[in-house]
Design a protein around this nucleic acid. Structure first.
Length: 500
RNA sequence: GUCCCCAUCGUCCAGCUAGGCCCAGGACACCGGUCUUUCAAGCCGGCAACACGGGUUCAAAUCCCGUUGGGGACGCCA
């Protein structure tokens, strides 16, 4: 059996989006699973829209996802000559012909067809111009495009698709399509398959939006006497209104960069998009790289499109809730050692990184991450909800202030008193801090919860978090005492009865 | 308009190839309960779907036909 060779051929006209990332992931999985080769090819023939920045953006996205390639990136524009030669070959062998119909004439015909509610197909006006005459006209400088001569018989093109099975398209439903523009440059349809052939691609795994092109390309393979690869057309990812997802209408949520910037773990992101239109066949949803590789197969790819569920109106929902959930799962359960570098990067990015976290405070840093990660969803949570663990400059959540700190007018006094008692503790431990707070509650005839919640709010700025005594020990005696006094002072300054 | 594809909870998937094990299973979301010092954490539970109509069959989510709905493609874009 020949070695598996697949390719990912993005056109560098914009950001790498979810759909493209998914196609890349499936190609990568297939290549890695079968010990094959993944070729990265940049289809930059649309000179108008292609930019070097977009190329870099795509490569960065792939690298971030952890998808490595074995060959390339190759650039399609470097092979233009070869594409033209192939077209010439088709022309010379009579399998293609020169078409002198002007753009305007064709557009008029098309408009006419639309007006009459008829289907439009090129009518073959130039198909039967004798080759010598066509050549003469070319020599005279008359502009022309080259069209492929689709067999005009009752036959059909047949090919294999791993997702859709045996596919067939009647010749009569395929028009004589253009392969070379009047300026002599090749059309994608041609370039793409010529490149696939040169790269010895065995499996073409691409989006379903390319499905209708397939019979044309198969025709080309056969005309050239080339071996036809096996195709796999993967389902599309739609938005909640079932529109094809695009950067233009959906904005950043559909770009890979967005997930990276919003604190997704690369593998959590891969895991999520792998589940859009594919499943291992059982109930597993969290799959490690190894498990995904073992479970992956083209045959299990779904034929129906899937919806990427997000609500641009809802500011809390920064992405599909399931994506968030999968990310949370990994943050909370992955080996701490693997998570640490991501947290470090996040803190660095937000200016919260302290070099001693990797040195003297190494143990403290690790146990802190372990303590707080249990209820985080994204890496950003470490620098937002978790800010108080790494900085004195943390925000006070409004709910924490109103509900926990202003729950009782005596709280400022209690916090001040508690600060003193905690400060005098010789051993600042889970047991000693708990004892101080519970004894105080008893002494003041209030439920411990009232004190505990107030202290949590004061010390972390949050209404929720790990168990309070863990938090206190983590933040440390000096910082806790300091914060209690500071917040107590602020509470006293605040005028009474501000809202009720 | 033409050609093609798809159709299971709100969403993502399982079940369909070889009909009975499915008055349909898992996950997310949502709702409720519970633990507790908090919950955006944990645990427990609930709501919720075979698009519709005909067939075939002892039996259909599964097979066939039609309808409806959705999607894709129809460029001298990729």
């Amino acid at each position: 059996m020949q070695k598996v060779r697949v390719r990912f051929p993005p056109s560098p006209t914009g950001y790498l989006h979810i759909g493209g990332a998914r196609t890349a992931l499936f190609n990568w999985l297939f290549a890695r699973k079968h010990g094959g080769v993944l070729v990265l090819r940049i289809e930059d023939t649309d000179v108008e829209r292609s930019t070097p920045e977009a190329v870099e953006e795509i490569l960065e996205g792939l690298r971030w996802m952890g998808l490595d390639w074995d060959e390339g990136p190759y650039f399609q524009t470097q092979y233009t000559l070869e594409h033209k030669e192939v077209a010439r070959r088709l022309l010379d062998s009579g399998q293609a012909y020169r078409c002198f119909c002007g753009k305007e004439a064709l557009e008029a015909k098309r408009a006419q067809a639309v007006r009459l509610h008829l289907s439009y197909q090129y009518d073959g006006t130039c198909r039967d111009i004798p080759p010598e005459e066509a050549l003469q006209r070319e020599l005279k400088g008359e502009p022309f495009v080259v069209r492929f001569k689709v067999p005009r018989d009752q036959g059909s093109v047949v090919w294999q698709d791993a997702v859709f099975g045996t596919e067939e398209k009647a010749h009569k439903d395929i028009e004589d399509f253009v392969i070379l523009r009047s300026n002599g440059t090749p059309i994608y349809l041609l370039s793409n398959m010529v490149d696939d052939h040169r790269d010895r691609i065995t499996h073409v795994i691409r989006g379903q939006d390319h499905r209708a092109n397939t019979p044309k390309q198969v025709l080309l393979y056969k005309a050239l006497g080339w071996e036809v690869p096996l195709f796999a057309h993967i389902s599309l990812t739609l938005d909640p209104k079932r529109r094809k997802i695009s950067k233009r209408v959906h904005g950043d949520v559909v770009t890979v960069r967005y997930y990276r910037e919003r604190g997704f773990l690369p593998w959590a992101f891969c895991n999520f998009i792998a589940l859009l239109g594919w499943s291992p066949g059982d109930d597993r949803e969290i799959l490690s790289r190894q498990e995904l590789l073992e479970a992956f197969s083209l045959e299990r790819l779904s034929r129906s499109n899937s919806v990427f569920n997000y609500d641009p109106e809802d500011p809390k929902l920064i992405a599909d809730p399931k994506a968030l959930n999968i990310n949370a799962h990994y943050i909370r359960t992955m080996p701490l050692k693997e998570l640490l570098p991501f947290v470090e990067e996040e803190l660095r990015l937000k200016g919260l990184w302290n070099p001693s976290y990797a040195d003297d405070l190494r143990d403290w840093f690790q146990s802190t991450v372990e303590l707080i990660r249990a209820r985080y969803f994204t890496l950003e949570d470490f620098s937002r909800q978790g800010r108080a663990y790494f900085s004195e400059d943390y925000a006070m959540d409004e709910k924490a202030w109103e509900r926990n700190l202003k729950a009782d007018p005596r709280i400022p006094g209690w916090l001040m008193e508690l600060a003193g008692r905690l400060e005098s503790l010789g051993v600042f431990s889970l047991e000693s801090t708990e004892r101080v707070i519970r004894e105080a509650a008893e002494e003041w005839f209030v439920k411990p919860g009232l004190i505990i919640n107030a202290v949590r709010a004061a010390v972390t700025g949050q209404t929720v978090g790990p168990g309070l005594f863990d938090v206190l020990v983590c933040i440390g005696q000096a910082r806790v005492v300091d914060r209690l006094r500071r917040v107590s002072g602020k509470l006293k300054q605040e005028p009474e009865g501000k809202g009720g």
